[in-house]
Amino acid sequence: MNPIASIGRASLGLLRAIGQVTLFAWRCVLAIISPPWYLRQIGRQLLSIGYFSLPVVGLTAVFTGAALALNIYTGGARFNAESFVPNIVGIGITRELGPVLASLMLAGRVSAAIAAEIGAMKVTEQIDALRTLSTNPFNYLYAPRIIAALIAVPLLVLIADIIGVFGGFAVATQSLGFNGPLYVKNTIDFITGWDVASGLIKAAVFGFIIALMGCYHGHNSGRGAQGVGRATTNAVVSAAILIFAANYMLTSLFV
């Protein structure tokens, strides 16, 4: 086998995939900004993506905040900086860990669910049926999911920020001997509006990625159980990688 040919084939495949995702994303954006808008579908997706993800996001945030407080305390103790626990937990959760970890959990839960549902709809000809019923699947299926993710993920991250900071607070006050009111005061004084806002902007971008990857891989799902299974896996993996890549780009833009 010619290694250069293999590299060429892989490169062309990658470029083709990027082109396909870009075109798909563009069609989704057009569907989002042009009627018809299916409000009932958007409501359903808000419930599914937002409300039903609360336990996953909340648990992730509380344990992350708690572990972060312990690590910062341990690290800070090496140069007498234990008192920075509330500050660093606050900034770490709002700017980075809240949006990234919550979105990764949502990539697992939401991207997978969207890809599986749309993939199964494709396999059972439900997407063809939509077209024969004069309904564009981009308007009916994909736009509502992306709109819901754009709204729900920042809200979930905001909740994750609060719960994450609370996780740090709980450990700091119960195990590390911090004074409760002082911890809260330090956190509030240190965190700026931009810390929270930049995290929420990231969350909106990650929400778009999460829903887009679920829709794209579901839309391009292969036949049968294996095809749907592969679409689900690809949706989660690609969403996670794109979240990390987008996080780096946004962080370098925001610092």
């Binding site: 439900q126 024969t132 019923l133 004069s134």
Partner: peptide, 29 residues
């Protein structure tokens, strides 16, 4: 497509909707 009616091999009914919502899909959407 509004001139068409189509019966799919497997039915292609929308799982998340009730029977009447399936039947009335074109009318409502």
């Amino acid at each position: 497509a509004s001139k068409f009616g189509m019966l799919f091999q497997g039915g292609a009914l929308f799982d998340s909707l009730s029977i009447w919502e399936n039947v009335a899909f074109r009318l409502t959407h």
